Amino acid sequence: MTASYNKTAPQALNKETQNAVEAFNALDTDAKLAWLYFVYEKLGDSITPAAPAAAEPELAPLLLGDYLKLSDDEQLNIMRDIVNRKDTEYSRAYGALKENNQLLVWYAWAIAMGDTVVDIPENYKPTEAINNLLSQIEGLEFEQQISVLRAIAAELGYSEVKPIETQAQTGKTPSL
Rank of each mutant, 00 (worst) to 15 (best):
K125V: 15
T8S: 11
I47F: 06
E155C: 01
K42R: 11
A55W: 10
K69W: 05
G65A: 12
L33M: 11
G171W: 10
E74H: 10
A54D: 01
L33N: 00
Q167D: 11
I78W: 09
A54T: 03
E74V: 10
A31G: 06
D45H: 08
N19K: 14
L27D: 05
F142C: 08
Y107G: 05
I152W: 02
A12D: 02
W35R: 02
N19Q: 10
G65I: 01
K162Q: 15
T88I: 05
N132P: 04
I130S: 07
V105F: 12
P174D: 13
G139Q: 01
A9R: 05
T29N: 03
L103A: 14
E143P: 00
R80K: 15
L68T: 10
K42P: 03
N100L: 10
S4N: 12
G139V: 05
S71K: 11
Y5P: 05
A110M: 04
Q145P: 07
A31R: 07
R150F: 09
I146W: 01
K125F: 03
K125L: 03
G171K: 10
Y158E: 01
T166S: 15
G44N: 04
D30T: 03
Y90R: 04
Q167G: 09
T173Q: 07
L156W: 10
F142S: 13
E143T: 15
L33Y: 04
W109L: 04
S175L: 11
A129T: 07
Q167F: 09
N14A: 06
E155I: 05
D81H: 14
D115F: 05
Y158L: 02
S159R: 03
L33P: 00
N25E: 12
E58W: 07
Q145K: 15
G95V: 12
P61K: 09
T166Q: 15
A3Y: 07
S147F: 03
E165M: 14
D119P: 02
N123E: 15
E22H: 13
N84E: 15
Y158R: 06
S175M: 08
Q18C: 12
M113F: 00
P49A: 11
V83D: 06
L27F: 06
D81T: 00
K172H: 08
L176D: 14
L76G: 08
L133K: 04
A53G: 02
T166D: 13
W106L: 14
D66R: 13
Q167K: 14
I111W: 02
I137W: 01
Y67V: 01
A51H: 05
Y158C: 00
K98F: 06
T116P: 02
A112Y: 02
E56R: 07
K86F: 04
N131D: 11
N100R: 13
A110S: 09
L149V: 14
A51K: 08
N19L: 13
L97R: 12
L62E: 12
E128W: 00
T127E: 10
R92V: 12
A110D: 12
P61V: 07
Y37L: 07
L62N: 06
L133Q: 10
K98I: 15
L140H: 06
G65F: 10
D45C: 01
S91Q: 10
N132D: 14
I152M: 03
A34E: 12
A20W: 08
Q75A: 04
Y158T: 02
T166I: 09
R80N: 12
L36K: 11
K42N: 14
